[in-house]
Amino acid sequence: MPTDPLFQPVASEARSPRTVSLSFNDQPLMVPAGSTVAAALLMSGINRFRATPVSEAPRAPYCMMGVCFDCLVTVDGVPNRQSCLVEVAAGMRILAQEGARDLLLQPANIAPGEVQP
């Protein structure tokens, strides 16, 4: 649930003229248009985006550039969206991703028997 936002606009930033409304875990939020979902959630005081499938530890964005996958959320019913790469849109329904193992088309990382270093 929201706490004091970890990130806020710097003093010289003009207030964003356009906002969109969306929801996170069914709670309505007004955020600047054009921002990424991750940026919008961070400035709205969301500090837990998902929990890991292994130990259900809380996670939030680490890299903001599509590398770490710690920002995964469910957007409009689609799980495993990288919120640092998705732009906000009016009416978006965002849900924290609690522990679900990904349903992505994962690379067949190891074929059985293939264990050369």
């Binding site: 606009p9 921002s35 990424t36 940026a39 400035m43 939030a60 680490y62 890299c63 903001m64």
Partner: peptide, 20 residues
């Protein structure tokens, strides 16, 4: 949560004008 890379924070600054 609350630990990020400096590059991530810089991305928030460059693209959204956000800072801690």
């Amino acid at each position: 949560p609350g630990v990020m890379s400096a590059g991530a924070a810089q991305i928030l600054l460059k693209s959204s004008g956000l800072a801690p």
